[in-house]
Amino acid sequence: MNGRLAVLAAALLLSSCAPDAPVARPQSDTPTIVSLNPCLDAILVEIAGPEQVLALSHYSRDPGGSSIPAGVAQSYGSTGGTAEEVIALQPDLVLASTFLPQPTRSALERAGLTVATFGSPVTVAESVAQVREVAALAGRAGNGEALAARIAAPPPQTGAPIDALLWQEGEIVAGEQTLIVELLRQEGFTSHAAARGLGQADRVSLERVLSDPPRMLLIAGDAPGQRHPLLEGQYKRMLIADFNPSLIYCGGPTIPKARERLRAIRAEAERRP
Rank of each mutant, 00 (worst) to 15 (best):
A6I: 01
L13P: 02
P19K: 11
A24F: 07
R25Q: 02
S28G: 11
T30K: 15
S35Y: 03
N37F: 09
C39P: 08
L40R: 10
A42L: 07
I43W: 00
I43A: 04
E46C: 10
P50W: 01
V53Y: 01
L56V: 03
Y59N: 08
Y59R: 11
Y59G: 05
D62C: 14
P63G: 10
I68V: 14
A70S: 13
A73I: 02
T82Y: 02
E84A: 12
E84H: 10
V86R: 06
V86F: 05
P91Q: 11
L93A: 09
F99D: 15
F99W: 15
P101L: 08
T104N: 12
S106Y: 11
S106K: 14
A107K: 13
L108G: 08
E109F: 11
E109N: 12
G112W: 14
L113T: 13
A116P: 13
F118T: 13
S120M: 14
P121G: 07
A125Q: 05
V128D: 04
R132T: 05
V134E: 03
A141G: 11
G142H: 03
N143P: 14
A148Y: 06
P154L: 12
D163K: 00
A164C: 13
G170T: 03
E176Y: 04
L179D: 01
I180S: 00
E182G: 09
E182Y: 07
R185D: 03
Q186P: 10
S191M: 08
R196A: 08
R203Q: 14
S205H: 12
P213I: 07
P214S: 04
R215F: 00
L217E: 02
L218I: 02
D222C: 07
R227I: 09
L231S: 01
Y235R: 15
L239K: 13
F243V: 01
N244W: 04
S246K: 06
L247H: 09
L247C: 10
L247F: 05
A258P: 02
A258D: 07
R261S: 07
A269E: 13
E270S: 07
